[in-house]
Design a protein around this nucleic acid. Structure first.
Lengths: 137, 137
DNA sequence: TCTTGACCTAGAGTTAACTGTAGGGTTTAG
DNA sequence: CTAAACCCTACAGTTAACTCTAGGTCAAGA
């Protein structure tokens, strides 16, 4: 079975070896095995688990909470409900983020139009009617 | 014209007074005026600017870069192009984030289904075929 | 055999973005 | 008029997530 050194694994995951060691220290990847001399060997499965960890991280989940999830995984079927609930909560959380992001895009697009018009006019004053005001921030 | 104290402003923006003072110190809100005795008075316009700042922050823009934008605003029409470019870049950045988030949701939904099935079966083994393997993380 | 480069741990340092404290002034309700 | 509840600054402390250094081990090529 093909395995990867820490720096190979880091390369595939777009992380650094430092970060992987840090994750290990934090208990995020207790399943990664070592050679006799103590060198970590990452299996495909480990890379998949790390992709899941990155996925959870991208939802804004802190590393300590991800560790709880990993601990539940090690505990087996007794924690299935907790894990299911966690993913349902994550789903709700990301969906809320998605809604927020749509609003953000609207605001940014408004600004793009604002500045495009201003650039065409050569001045921001175009957005001030006849009144003298401070620029929009 | 109605104005707000720092703690009122914080309440409306869902921030703390500490955070607003920190933003001020970092040069994000140089336009906020003070009373004779030095107390900050936030105008509606200032709250709008802060909403824009929060919007930029939500795109992952660091405070130092937001400050550059504020500085450009103070410099006037000479910086219109920079500001336009910045918003175009922000737009591209958030759109990329949106794509990432869609992939995240897919992964999370996969896991929700995985755990729902496992819960129904009472064991994660249902996902292992007949093989004995470690659980999915 | 020797050297080079990758690996290891422990622990210190960094960075961003707050968050809180100390000490002091001001405003407002009773 | 006074006490509580604000406000202010300066600066120290916190937290998360790395990031790096020092000192050492190990494995492969010249």
């Amino acid at each position: 079975m093909k395995t990867y050194s820490i720096s190979e694994a880091a390369k595939y995951l777009d992380l650094t070896a430092y970060t992987l060691r840090y994750y290990d220290k934090e208990g995020l990847i207790p399943f990664v095995e070592r050679t006799e001399s103590g060198t970590r060997r990452f299996k495909e499965k480990d890379l998949d688990a790390l992709r899941m960890i990155e996925c959870l991280k991208s939802t804004g989940m802190p590393i300590k909470e991800i560790k709880h999830f990993i601990d539940w995984c090690l505990e087996g079927d007794a924690t299935l409900q907790q894990r299911y609930d966690m993913f349902l909560e994550r789903k709700a959380c990301v969906e809320a983020q998605l809604e927020e992001m749509k609003k953000t895009i609207e605001m940014i697009e408004h600004k793009c139009r604002y500045y495009q018009t201003a650039l065409e006019a050569g001045t921001e004053d175009i957005h001030k009617g006849a009144r003298l005001e401070f620029p929009e921030y």
